[in-house]
Amino acid sequence: MSLAHEEVLSTPSSDVPVEYSTEDGALKIFGFWIFLATDLILFACLFTMYQILHINTAGGPTEQELYDVPGFTAETLILLVSSFTCGLATLEMRRGRRSASMGWLVVTVLLGLSFIFLEVREFVDYVNRGATMQRSAFLSSFFTLVGTHGCHVSLGILWMLSILYQLGRRGISAMTARKIFIVGLYWHFLDVVWVFIFTVVYLQGVM
């Protein structure tokens, strides 16, 4: 048994992906899975809040009035595709192809940015129509749930930019590979959360 904190490649073999080649990498990946579990519970609580409060519109704007099918469908498609491109970045990383991996990450970041753009536009639009989070319990929980997801995505974008920089400087090493893998897990997880926002918030809202 060795210590956790190593970045030393132990017997690099073509059969082991680089991110798993050090014990440090394996530990951090496992740790990150558990972090995702905590984030899952966090979103579960926010979804519960939303589900309980969404009919309490207090005479203000309702879901039916606000949600716009083409808008949220576009957001959903963008995120789904970005999850795919992010998966390809990990795949190319495993094949040891740095520029391909970076390329897919850039695509992912761009898709993420356009998602954020659409979301911000949606929020601004709601606010302009008087649907602020102070208006009703429904809107408080809507903005908080969807906004928390949006913050996660924004953070993911910053994180990917930092990884892109490191990839450019250092190439694929046990450390950068592990980071790509982990940011990938994060991104796919956010995609899953969004699917539930799509279902519980938007589809239920226009049902």
Binding site: N56, T57, A58, Q134, S136, A137, S141, F143, T144
Partner: peptide, 17 residues
Amino acid sequence: IDRLFGAHFFTMLQGGN
């Protein structure tokens, strides 16, 4: 968020619970 930004999660007004 309720306290600082005036949202209505747990207030008695505007549908809070």
